[in-house]
Design a protein around this nucleic acid. Structure first.
Lengths: 418, 418
DNA sequence: TAGCCTTATTTAAAGATGCGAATAAAGTCT
DNA sequence: AGACTTTATTCGCATCTTTAAATAAGGCTA
């Protein structure tokens, strides 16, 4: 049980965090503007910012020309204060990216995976080797690393030791963070579900910006979702919340790969769509090699094939109902449609998807929700992962005395957090 | 945009709130124990408690015998500090209850509604008259009222003026709080969806106690749900979250009264169950007069009628899938089954419901969730409503300088809140 | 029953923090 | 150059929690 009391030090920590976060997301800003946005007095802003500058977190960044008064000095988070690494452990490969504190990408390493179910040890090796390449490529030292975030294709059990359960790649209870530490990486490691890191990327830098209540719906071969409540990722009791794909949409319907019947994923996941398309074609295989091209083929065929048109229409109906469920349950102000299949569907059929959603959602909630396309694409998993250590830094106000070891810390993105 | 800064005054307010809440939920406690539970130093506890006593919120309540030291003085919230009223505006009648600050019921007034769609003005009259009766019966003055909570059968739009949208009783955009104020009630009025107030009652005093992540599933003629995330009721962007009943469970299925097809409510709401039963009986009406007796008839008939048995089994299946959706999306630690129909089903079929849920939920999330029966019953709507002003009081630490006017304030029930 | 021991609570002093007012700084304008 | 304007910093103050020391209030022992 964490302490519920608050001391004067907590005050300062919180205000530090508020100022630093504001600068990070809305900077560069002058001290004056900072005061206006946060509600802090000029005196305190000056005082705290001075501390942040002394700690090397913030630097002055030019002036704004004045029209008859002392010019404002702009402040920004110092990008060179430290670096973060984001890792996307996917089903087909491992992508590692290194960013500075302004989230500018400094280096990238890509390592395809041969086997569909790679041994954990192998992934560990790949990651360890990747670090060397990344650091060399970017020309920075390991000691500059503020933290490492890893997105994995499965649920992450937060606890004393963080464990990964990822059916698709055959991991069950893997302590990935410990493994990485064992490879000699001393920076704090954060592990999180890939859909959630991608969702967070969309919230920080994409179509989710500014929303306090949102759902990022990710449709690829399978289906995932990130639920943002009050500015922070909702994780539930054991961080496996948001399993939208395995929500029953058609009771007693198609068999899903999770073993249940009638899951949304079985209808709207790319695999499910293509399987249904195949059946509709009388069992004839869909042209093209990979799922992505096959889905494009289907969508292109709508104009000339009744079968394709009917199938796509049906798919949009299912998707609309699935989205409507999110609207009814979460009452978000925004729904962001992402994932490669989601982008393919959404870029051509967004109006139809909206209509289908409206048909299944309660009027009041639907009217409050805007349904938009994502802005970042599937390779945002790594950026989103890199976001995790930054989030921890911001939420602690980068207190130099505290080394973030805990997995999950919360910082809300903008607008006052209780 | 609320301020994100914090001052020393906020500190005190928060610690006051922490101590008062702890005392409310876990009292009576000694100053010493309070220190232990909250993490506050003995000095601060003493100091703040002194203030609370001066303000009349807390009283000393006997001693605990010692075994060789100064005995501990027990402290508790003073039940006579003030009273709260909870009102259940239902489809069939208005129930009003008056409680003291220890939530002991002091008086009750019941007023059945003749018309199914009562005019707002009439309900206003009923409520105004009820206040008089309530106060007289309990022998307290109006000035002792700390606040009034009202649970209504519809969604509540929180905003500058709070508006009620309740299809079932034909209300659209009713400013109920203003109406009550116009009747001369000066105490703060809180309006909230009845399912949410009932859920809150269950969290404070029933089967939800101690859970930080829970869903209270309410099955009556229709279906509602209260979602508790991190100790507080989840409301979403415009407080219409938790519309579980109108979640699509069987795509393209039965027509629901909301106009959509295949809603959970159309299958598992009592009306839906009985309608399906009627159809299964070849259109023959179900014996008994009211829904409640008819549902009992159905459940009793399971042993002797294959039709009834099949129908109930099917219903349990649908319900399980519906609950599984909650498990997958919210990953709660507990699901509380309530509502009169939910109690009827749950008290006889809980194991079957659990099995059906397991068949549709992801293993990991299901294993973390316990599914239990509610403890309070449908008449908890009024208690839950009365809980709203108390919640506001606790969350503000009952700062004597602040009169709670705002509708919604948050206090988490136990265990440290961020 | 007086004195000692133990535990609970209160008091005193110290260290932190944010705020408002006053002051300094850095320009523009005339 | 001097007046004026806007931004940033400094200073004294009120508030707050904490630690340490003092006090209160019993039981226990001889």
């Amino acid at each position: 049980m964490q302490p519920r009391r608050a001391t004067v030090r907590d005050l300062r920590r919180r205000n530090r965090s508020t100022l630093l976060s504001t600068l990070f997301f809305e900077g560069p800003l002058s001290r004056h503007e900072l005061g206006g946005r946060t509600g802090l007095s000029a005196a305190t802003v000056s005082n705290v910012v001075g501390e942040l500058i002394d700690d090397g977190l913030v630097i002055e960044a030019g002036q704004v020309e004045s029209d008859g008064g002392r010019p404002r000095v702009l402040l920004r988070v110092d990008p060179t204060f430290g670096n973060v690494v984001g890792i996307d452990v996917g089903e087909t490969g491992v992508t590692m990216e290194l960013f500075d504190l302004s989230m500018t990408r400094l280096a990238t390493v890509d390592h395809p995976l041969a086997t569909p179910q790679p041994d954990v040890a192998i992934v560990g090796e790949i990651i360890a080797a990747g670090f060397g390449t990344l650091l060399a490529e970017a020309g920075v030292t390991e000691s500059s690393l503020l933290g490492v975030g890893i997105g994995v294709p499965g649920t992450v059990e937060q606890g004393a030791t963080v464990r990964v359960h990822a059916q698709t790649i055959g991991w069950d209870g893997v302590a990935l963070a410990d493994l990485v530490h064992a490879k000699g990486i001393t920076a704090p490691v954060f592990v999180e579900n890939g859909a959630k890191t991608q969702g967070q990327a969309e919230m920080w830098f994409g179509a989710g910006r500014g929303a306090r209540h949102a759902v990022i719906a990710l449709i690829g071969s399978g289906i995932g979702a990130t639920v943002i409540t009050d500015g922070t990722t909702y994780r539930g009791a054991t961080s496996s919340a948001g399993e939208w794909g395995h929500t029953t949409l058609s009771y007693g319907g198609r068999l899903c790969r999770c073993g249940a019947l009638g899951c949304l994923e079985a209808y709207v996941g790319a695999e499910g769509i293509l399987d249904r398309f195949r059946k509709a074609r009388g069992g004839k295989a869909v042209p093209r090699d990979d799922e992505q091209s096959q889905l494009d083929f289907l969508l292109d065929a709508v104009d000339r094939s009744d079968i394709a048109a009917a199938l796509v229409e049906e798919t949009v109906g299912y998707l609309g109902a699935g989205i409507a469920n999110l609207v009814n349950l979460f009452n978000p102000e925004r729904i962001v449609l992402g994932g490669w299949a989601g982008m393919a569907l959404g870029s051509r059929l967004l109006p139809e998807i909206r209509t289908a959603t409206a048909a299944h959602a309660l009027r009041h909630a639907y009217d409050q929700t805007s349904i938009v396309l994502c802005e970042l694409g599937p390779d945002a998993v790594a950026v989103g992962a890199a976001t995790l250590p930054v989030e921890a830094l911001l939420s602690l106000g980068a207190d130099p005395r505290i080394r973030p070891k805990a997995q999950i810390l919360q910082v809300s993105q903008g607008k006052g957090h209780g």
